[in-house]
Amino acid sequence: MIERQEGRLLVKAPLTMANAGGLLDAGRSALQAGEVVFDFSAVDEADSSAIAVMLGWLRAAGAAGAHVKFAHIPAGVRSLAELYGVADLLPLA
């Protein structure tokens, strides 16, 4: 679901309700101290659960001493984040 590549965590599964729990757990497990970039360039499907997963990773990062950034967020997810008023909470790489 998530693969470490060139210092980034490449998300390789749809960011949908069906995968949300697994992605949340996989992202938490992959966190390390320092800066962590979740790269969504391989994501071809996403729904509103992506916002919850990303916020969950941010919370887990704080507990792990990591600083999370997000790269290549799908346009639909970015639009949803703006609609929900949480876009400013999602740090971009």
Rank of each mutant, 00 (worst) to 15 (best):
G62A: 11
A63I: 13
H72D: 07
A61F: 06
R28L: 04
A52Q: 08
S49H: 02
P91F: 12
D25Q: 11
N19Q: 14
I73Y: 01
A61T: 12
R28A: 07
A60V: 08
A50T: 10
A63G: 06
I51H: 00
N19W: 00
Y84K: 10
D44C: 08
L23Q: 03
A13C: 12
R78M: 03
V43G: 05
G65I: 14
L55V: 12
E35F: 01
H72E: 10
D39N: 15
S29V: 00
A63H: 09
V43A: 11
L58G: 08
F70R: 07
R78T: 09
G56V: 09
D88N: 08
W57R: 07
V68N: 08
G56H: 11
V36Y: 01
N19L: 00
F70E: 02
S29N: 05
L89K: 11
L92I: 12
V68S: 10
A71Y: 07
L23T: 09
V77Y: 00
A71L: 15
L89N: 11
P14Q: 07
G34W: 06
A18Y: 13
R59F: 10
A33I: 02
M17T: 11
L55K: 05
A18C: 06
A60K: 05
I73E: 03
S48Y: 00
A64L: 09
V68C: 15
A63M: 13
A26D: 12
R59C: 13
L92D: 11
F70G: 01
D44F: 09
V53H: 00
L92R: 12
L90W: 05
L9E: 08
V37C: 14
A61Q: 06
A26W: 08
L10K: 03
E35Y: 01
V11L: 13
E45P: 04
A18P: 04
A33H: 04
L23C: 02
V43R: 10
R59T: 15
G65N: 12
A42D: 15
A60F: 05
R78E: 08
A52L: 07
D44W: 06
D44V: 11
Q32D: 01
L23S: 00
L31A: 04
A26K: 03
Y84L: 15
R78N: 09
G76P: 05
R78V: 07
L31T: 05
A50S: 14
S29E: 09
V37R: 04
A46Q: 02
Y84H: 13
